[in-house]
């Protein structure tokens, strides 16, 4: 059976696409899925850094497209920790138009039979880079933060995904701050759902562990004490078809939170 090809996209930059790909990819691999992550952000690659794989890059996506390397497998980098997780890095010294949507489709077609999941890290924006990243995907995850401008861009992206015949994207709300939501200073899940009206895949709290783990090159999903890590583990379970409940204001229910709730008799 061919694997699922999922693009992670947002419109607005810096909202957490790369973080999401790294964590979901690692989380799925922890569940023994065979996963490849494709960095489609040519010229601004950083999925390799977030994964701690930067020093292993020999060939990249453009080399594969231009057939500089013999096969796509030559360019795949195996993860340090998980032997069933791979990265196809972006080229750093080229532009978005160094590859075409058709080439992207051809590359993904080659990988589809072999992998359970193909995750594509999309660049910000709605131009060529977006067209490339979306070309081969049949599913999409839209990432937004709880800010009006990010939500507007997410809405625009959902419309553009329709034009590419991806009709049921799912949403990750990233960097939610429960304290701010409670004070009414931040949009909450309902406000965002009101506008975007697509299925919610998960809520990831704002968590400094993400920054620490990014610097270490070790996705937070591997860290049992990170709240964001737990949120990504729940997201992965939902992707695999499990029903995992949401907590709207407090983000995902963490172990500690659950413990507190028990203590408080709720």
């Amino acid at each position: 059976m061919a694997g699922r090809v999922i693009v992670v996209t947002s419109g607005k930059g810096g909202v957490g696409k790369t973080t999401t790909v790294a964590n979901i990819g690692t989380g799925l691999a922890l569940r023994h899925k065979k996963v490849v992550m494709i960095d489609a952000d040519i010229g601004l690659r950083n999925l390799d850094v977030v994964m701690g794989l930067e020093n292993r890059i020999i060939y990249d996506l453009v080399d594969v497209a231009e057939k500089t390397c013999r096969s796509v497998h030559k360019a795949l980098i195996k993860d340090k920790r998980l032997s069933n997780l791979f990265l196809l890095p972006a080229a750093q010294t080229r532009n978005k138009d160094a590859i075409s949507p058709e080439q992207m489709v051809a590359i993904v077609d080659e990988l589809k039979e072999e992998f359970d999941y193909i995750l594509v890290d999309c660049p910000a924006g709605i131009e060529r880079g977006f067209d490339n990243a979306v070309a081969a995907a049949t599913e999409a995850i839209v990432v937004t933060t709880p800010e009006v401008s990010a939500v507007r861009d997410a809405d625009r992206i959902i419309g553009l995904l329709q034009d590419k015949e991806i009709y049921d994207p799912v949403l990750i709300l990233n960097r939610l701050r429960p304290d701010m939501v409670r004070k009414g200073d931040m949009m909450d899940v309902d406000d965002i759902n009101d506008i975007l009206a697509i299925k919610l895949l998960g809520i990831v709290p704002d968590d400094e562990e993400i920054i620490i783990s990014t610097n270490k090159g070790e996705p937070a999903v591997l860290n049992n004490h990170s709240k964001a890590g737990e949120a990504f583990r729940n997201i992965v379970r939902r992707m695999e078809g499990e029903e995992v409940p949401f907590m709207s204001v407090n983000g995902e229910p963490g172990l500690f939170g659950r413990f507190l709730k028990l203590l408080n008799g709720k």
């Binding site: 625009r156 419309g159 553009l160």
Partner: peptide
């Protein structure tokens, strides 16, 4: 369905949307 940010529909006649018209 929802008419989203960046989508513009023109029509000679009436338009009925079974969904929302979003900002943009």
């Amino acid at each position: 369905g929802t008419v989203r940010n960046g989508q513009r529909l023109e029509h000679e006649g009436d338009i009925v949307v079974k969904g929302d018209l979003n900002p943009g």
